[in-house]
Design a protein around this nucleic acid. Structure first.
Lengths: 233, 233
DNA sequence: TGCTGTGAAACGGTTCACAGCC
DNA sequence: GGCTGTGAACCGTTTCACAGCA
């Protein structure tokens, strides 16, 4: 079903991306068929959910058999709009920014970093992975020249909003925000936030609580309680 | 309400972490009172949701007035178990791993990177931010010595599962996984996955679709349709 | 009066169970 | 028989509307 204009649930999209990654790996490994069980396990999902997810795009499997790996891969590619080599600019060339320039996960999924911007004059002109870092003032020109529509922000939180405003004014419509601050943008612009500190903190919370009693993490709490002013929980 | 044993909804936990970050910033700026409107806006949430979220931990506000910034900050700290300087080890000292060692968002939220592991013999012994990189074989010893219970994996996907197995066997109960692969762990271990490539791809999808027609991103599609293999710049 | 705290309704997403097809 | 596709039940989350309190 579902050939109308993509009403794909947001949560499903996130998983489709994972399925696609697994399919690509399987195809490279020469595997030609998968069942929903196998694919779901490899992607860390459950089979019923995978089938439900796929049912939002169409019926690409064969009952009693499974899915043809490369066929399903192509279908997901199309639905997700992958394989385009979309140009991306990175604003903020600190440690994280530099790590992302080299990140293989970007290129392997159809993105190409085409520009780097950093406000620090000491960095202007420096070469990173074949790209020349552009100064603050060059942001607008860079975007116009490269035709980038997606930007990654890895600046300090304090300047993230101003950078955002200039990106949006320059035609950027998608922002991946690593700065630990909320960004306000017009409704036609999409922001996705990734806060690495938050991720760790959320993880730590889930370690503390769900393990029925206190989970092993409380071992550390007790250990550090010797000279702790506050008590946990 | 809710003084029983923390049945805090998972989705709420993620936001509480953000509220806490904003509160910390406000406290540093000398602000002493916030309303749910202000706090929600600063954290990128909506006021009703914020109040609902907070109601899971207790009644820490004053009706008709708002919240006392530092008091609420302390309460969130306690409920989230923050402020403990939890020791964390990073396995895989590539570009991303190095960026995380220096990441201020870790230390500011109560985590301390206490160890680095990398299988590349060329890196063994190298100093990064005052820490000496330990070889593959030293993983177990490092964890025992530092008492770390949380690990960050930034290795290639191919070795992530073996690394995980050894981490778990060494007593690690929380893993932040940056490798683009699903990890299987015993039920007492919590894994949180962050796939940077996926994040970009999900962002790109949301840019393509929701903008009613085709959104500006299709401008790039058309532009690149002139010659299929053409690349920007 | 104004803002918090919260039941209750509405929503979206997940899980279940089985019909449908190979 | 086996595995996909999918309606229907289930569950968690969000939103709403207003009661409760300074």
């Amino acid at each position: 079903m579902s050939d109308a204009e993509s009403p794909i649930p947001g949560a499903t999209v996130a998983r489709l991306v994972d399925y696609l990654a697994v399919l690509t790996r399987l195809a490279d490994a020469g595997v030609s068929k998968v069942s929903s069980n196998e694919l779901a396990e490899a992607a860390g999902a459950n089979p019923a959910q995978l089938r439900k997810d796929l049912s939002h795009l169409g019926s690409y499997g064969t009952r009693g058999v499974g899915y043809d790996v490369s066929y399903l891969q192509i279908q997901l590619d199309q639905h997700l709009g992958a394989g385009l080599d979309l140009p991306v600019v990175i604003v903020g060339v600190g440690n994280l920014g530099r790590a992302l320039v080299n990140h293989t996960g970007f290129s392997s999924r159809g993105f190409k970093v085409v520009g780097l911007v950093d406000a620090d004059p000491a960095l202007t002109g420096e070469q990173v992975e074949g790209l020349t870092i552009v100064g603050d003032a060059g942001l607008e020109t860079l975007i116009a020249r490269t035709g980038a529509t997606i930007a990654v922000i890895t600046t300090p939180a304090e300047v993230a909003q101003q950078v955002t405003d200039r990106l949006v004014a320059s035609g950027i419509i998608g922002i991946l925000n690593f700065a630990p601050t909320a960004l306000s943008v017009p409704s036609n612009v999409t922001v996705r936030k990734v806060d690495l500190g938050s991720e760790l903190q959320i993880l730590a919370y889930h370690c503390r609580v769900p393990g029925s009693k206190d989970s092993l993490l409380s071992a550390w709490n007790e250990q550090s309680n010797e000279l702790a002013g506050a008590d946990p929980l």
